[in-house]
């Protein structure tokens, strides 16, 4: 069809389509093998060699060698002796890695305000001694439902409760929070944050912690 003004007949179009079937199928097959099999396969093998820890999910073991979770994935913490993470809207149970996602509540949905009120009330009840303002990250659900981080303020306000529940001096817990503080990259990228999973893992591995962990 060199002249765009005169399109070919219906039969002409059909012939044109049929002529493309062989190259379409052959190239789809070869490109599928290259990008759908070789590429992920080669990348997996290479990355497993280069970054074995990250590639397998940044899995973290405790002193006993048991895998306790991923440094990147939040876990549900409810008992007072643990630092609590952000609310999670994953499926039936919070922080369920098989059902990642957010609440998808609209910004002006009254249900959102209702939920936040409940969370505020619960936080106030748990942390009776803390009277300051509650940081917003601790009362809103994350997008993934697996956010392992909370803000430094959200961690600090829980120190008194955790210390009391564990019978530890506040300073020690305070220091652990400070030790787990991750700053923004180069002071620019991202936000300062505390990884609740890693902080709690460290708490749990403190000498004499086991007893406290078992008692609800």
């Amino acid at each position: 069809m060199p002249d765009p003004e005169t399109p070919p007949s219906a039969a002409g179009w059909l012939a044109m389509l049929i002529a493309q079937v062989r190259p379409a199928c052959t190239l789809l097959a070869t490109l599928a093998i290259i990008t759908g099999i070789f590429y992920p396969l080669a990348m997996t093998m290479a990355i497993q060699q280069l970054f074995p820890y990250q590639a397998s999910g940044s899995l973290v073991q405790d002193a006993q060698g048991t895998v306790r979770g991923s440094a990147l994935i939040g876990q549900p913490f409810r008992a007072p002796q643990w630092f609590h993470g952000r609310p999670s809207a994953t499926g039936e149970t919070p922080c369920d890695p098989t059902a990642s996602g957010g609440s998808n509540l609209g910004p002006t949905n009254p249900a959102l305000a209702g939920l936040v009120r409940e969370r505020v009330a619960a936080l106030r009840a748990e942390n009776g001694s803390f009277l300051g303002p509650l940081p917003i990250d601790l009362v809103t659900a994350s997008g993934s439902g697996l956010d392992p981080h909370i803000s430094p303020a959200a961690a600090r306000l829980q120190v008194t409760r955790v210390a009391a529940a564990r019978g530890l001096p506040q300073e020690i817990v305070e220091k652990m929070v400070t030790d787990h503080l991750e700053p923004a990259m180069l002071g620019i990228f991202g936000r300062p944050r505390v990884n609740v999973f890693l902080l709690n893992l460290a708490l749990g591995s403190l000498p004499g912690a086991a007893a406290a962990d078992r008692s609800p």
Binding site: R86, L105, A113, R117, L134, P135, I136, T140, S144
Partner: peptide, 24 residues
């Protein structure tokens, strides 16, 4: 009832419309 929630950003915590957003 939510006057005690601090939605503003500070060096200590992120602010804004954080429902559905990640802290990092």
């Amino acid at each position: 009832l939510l006057q005690s929630v601090d939605q503003g950003a500070s060096t200590d915590h992120e602010g804004g419309s954080l429902e559905g957003k990640e802290v990092r």
